[in-house]
């Protein structure tokens, strides 16, 4: 029963990941693709949490933290790159 509910929610998660990938491929601007990558990170966090309930295992909690941190840093770097044309600026005037 509980396993079936969890599988059901995993299937919902699959559909939302598919929708995000559609937007990632189709998206008209580059900013939307960055946003879709961020959303993929969020859905991956949810998926790992559901799997750790299903397997009754504590080994995946570090992965939740890691995916969160990596997707955040990647999003910030990509957005800065889109905005200024460079991730690190070498000679700042101010």
């Amino acid at each position: 029963m509980i396993q079936w509910i969890l599988f059901f929610s995993l299937s919902f998660l699959t559909f939302s990941i598919l929708a995000t990938i559609y937007r990632l491929v189709k998206g008209p601007t580059a900013s939307e693709r960055v946003m879709a990558l961020d959303a993929l990170g969020i859905y991956l966090i949810s998926g790992v949490a559901i799997f750790s309930i299903l397997l009754k295992s504590r080994a995946f909690f570090e992965i939740i933290l890691l995916i969160g941190i990596l997707s955040f840093v990647g999003t910030i770097a990509l957005a800065r790159f889109l905005e200024r044309g460079a991730v690190f600026e070498r000679n700042q005037s101010d």
Binding site: I5, L6, F8, S9, L10, F12, L13, S16, I42, Y43, S46, A49, I50, I53
Partner: peptide, 8 residues
Amino acid sequence: VLVGTIFG
């Protein structure tokens, strides 16, 4: 968990 994934 199901409610959370439905929100997503």
